[in-house]
Amino acid sequence: MRIATLRNTRAAGLCGALLFGALVPGLAQADANIEARNKQAVSQAFERWAAGGTTFFSDILTPDVVWTIKGSGPSAGVYRGVDAFVAKAVQPFAARLSTPVRPVSKQVWANGDHVIIQWDGAGMARDGQPYRNSYAWIFRMRDGKAYEVSAYLDLPAYDDVLQRIPDPA
């Protein structure tokens, strides 16, 4: 009886190993597909933005996104929800520009559910001075949209526009 149990245990272990081995390539392929779809979603949203689109944040962010601007300047902080982020970080800045910031170059990488985009942006402030900045955004994706973002940028350049140009409202 003991020998039969040992054989059954070995057979079950061998079957499990074979099944796991058969599934691992499928899992790796699924991860690669998710990475490719996430990278494509972010890349396409950036391309629409660069071409003049105005719906980037609603295109790529979940309504409950947690957006963190890293750093120690007055604009650094955590914004909970796309509406709060747009109202408190995007609109006050955009109101001080005569031409909106547009991506002028980008590099995109994907790893698992993360997409990293390094991009340079340019716009024009209402006082006629150009605005240029470099950004690195790390998106954590779910179903093709970012639900967590860590944003790195030259905060002094961003904050200078907010402080130098009066709010037109």
Rank of each mutant, 00 (worst) to 15 (best):
Lys39Leu: 13
Ala87Val: 06
Arg142Gln: 14
Ala110Pro: 01
Ser58Arg: 11
Gln40His: 12
Glu35Ile: 04
Tyr135Gly: 01
Ala28Tyr: 13
Ile165Val: 05
Val90Asp: 02
Val78Ser: 08
Pro166Thr: 10
Arg37Gly: 03
Leu23Lys: 07
Arg10Cys: 14
Arg142Asn: 10
Ser150His: 13
Val82Pro: 00
Pro92Ala: 09
Pro103Ser: 13
Leu27Ile: 06
Ala95Ile: 00
Ile69Ser: 07
Lys106Glu: 12
Pro74Arg: 07
Val149His: 02
Ala151Arg: 02
Ala4Ile: 12
Val78Cys: 05
Asp143Thr: 02
Lys145His: 15
Ala30Asn: 00
Phe20Ile: 12
Gln129Trp: 11
Ser43Cys: 01
Asp83Leu: 01
Arg7Asn: 04
Gln91Met: 14
Asp120Thr: 06
Val82Ile: 15
Ala30Asp: 14
Pro166His: 09
Pro166Met: 05
Ala30Pro: 00
Val149Asp: 02
Gly21Ser: 06
Ala12Leu: 09
Met124Tyr: 12
Met141Leu: 09
Trp49Leu: 01
Pro92Met: 04
Tyr131Asn: 01
Trp109His: 01
Ala122Glu: 15
Leu27Lys: 09
Leu61Val: 03
Gly52Ile: 06
Gly144Asp: 08
Gln44Leu: 10
Val66Asn: 00
Asp167Glu: 04
Cys15Ser: 10
Leu61Met: 14
Met141Tyr: 06
Asp59Pro: 05
Ala94Glu: 04
Ala76Pro: 05
Asp167Gly: 02
Pro100Ser: 07
Thr5Val: 13
Ala110Gly: 04
Trp137Leu: 14
Leu61Ala: 04
Ala136His: 08
Val78Gly: 04
Gln129Glu: 13
Trp49Phe: 15
Gly16Arg: 10
His114Met: 09
Trp67Gln: 01
Asp31Ile: 06
Asp83His: 15
Ala28Trp: 14
Arg102Ala: 03
Lys145Asp: 00
Leu27Tyr: 12
Ser75Glu: 09
Ala87Thr: 10
Ala87Asn: 09
Ala169Leu: 12
Phe56Thr: 03
Ala89Thr: 02
Met141Pro: 03
Gln118Ala: 07
Glu47Ala: 15
Ala87Met: 11
Thr55Val: 04
Met1Glu: 12
Ile3Lys: 11
Arg142Thr: 05
Gly16Lys: 08
Leu97Gly: 01
Ser58Thr: 14
Asp31Lys: 12
Asp64Ser: 06
Ile3Thr: 11
Glu148Ala: 05
Trp137Met: 08
Trp119Tyr: 07
Asn111Asp: 15
Val65Met: 03
Ala22Gly: 15
Arg96Pro: 00
Tyr147Gly: 06
Gln118Cys: 11
Trp67Ile: 03
Asp143Ala: 08
Ile165Cys: 00
Phe46Lys: 05
Asp160Pro: 01
Arg126Asp: 02
Asp160Tyr: 06
Ser43Pro: 02
Val66Ala: 04
Ala76Ile: 07
Asp64Pro: 02
Ala169Phe: 14
Val82Ser: 13
Ser75Asn: 07
